[in-house]
């Protein structure tokens, strides 16, 4: 797999690849919306204390949650702890999910990312963590290997490939690495204002490329 030029193994899975492009954003977005409606319905049942629905919600979200948490937290056993906290938070606060404000998956993954960030920022200054450890963000050993997950990865990879290098690095370091934009600026050796601007530009482009705008 060709890799992003200077990032090395850092963003291996997201290396630029202009391939067959068979993952059409329209089709993907449609499938995503259907899946999300189902998840939102399930959350409604969970809000009423339905443990069977919670079981199904777990199956839908666990891999995304664990993937995000582990990218940020790094340590395996702590990642499992945080993942469990997130899942219980979903159970506890399901009644507060409001589908008019966004998708169910966005609600869950926001909780996951926030919790993971809180864990690392409370523990130590994240800047002290070495950059190379980001390499572990997306290891191959237990990456979920289903058709849907592969499509997701393919689409995200393609869209990340459409960003400039600085945009891509800003987003991946912030989201997968859990760094603040000031830390990202320090890591990349560019002014913080430049990073914040590129981050926003990148998200706007990803939004359009992934077809998740409203």
């Amino acid at each position: 797999m060709p890799e992003a030029k200077t990032s090395g193994p850092l963003f291996r899975i997201f290396g630029v690849r202009t391939g067959s492009g068979r993952a059409s954003p329209q089709r993907g977005a449609q499938a995503q919306r259907t899946a999300d409606r189902e998840l939102a319905d399930l959350l409604g049942q969970v809000a009423r204390g339905d443990l069977a629905a919670f079981d199904a919600v777990y199956d839908c979200v666990a891999a995304s949650v664990f993937g995000v948490v582990r990218g940020v937290v790094r340590d395996r056993s702590q990642s499992e702890e945080v993942t469990q906290e997130v899942v219980i938070e979903v159970w506890r606060t399901a009644s507060r999910f409001d589908r008019s404000k966004g998708s169910a998956m966005a609600w869950v993954t926001t909780i996951a990312h926030r919790r993971a960030i809180d864990r690392v920022r409370s523990e130590q200054k994240a800047a002290e963590r070495e950059l190379r450890t980001v390499t572990a963000a997306v290891p191959y050993d237990d990456v979920v290997d289903t058709v849907e997950a592969n499509l997701d990865r393919e689409r995200v990879r393609r869209c990340l490939g459409g960003l400039t290098e600085l945009q891509r690095e800003s987003v991946t370091l912030a989201y997968y690495g859990g760094y603040t934009y000031r830390q990202v600026a320090g890591l990349l050796g560019v002014p913080p204002g430049t990073v914040s601007t590129r981050m926003r530009d990148a998200l706007i482009r990803l939004r359009d490329c992934l077809g998740v705008g409203r």
């Binding site: 998956m105 966005a106 963000a137 939004r207």
Partner: peptide, 24 residues
């Protein structure tokens, strides 16, 4: 920000990794 939350959800899905069975 709400739209960016949707982008983040896709970034999350792309990084999905199976947690151990016991966690469930």
């Amino acid at each position: 920000i709400a739209e960016f939350g949707e982008v983040a959800a896709r970034l999350a899905a792309a990084a999905a990794a199976q947690p151990p069975e016991a966690l469930k």
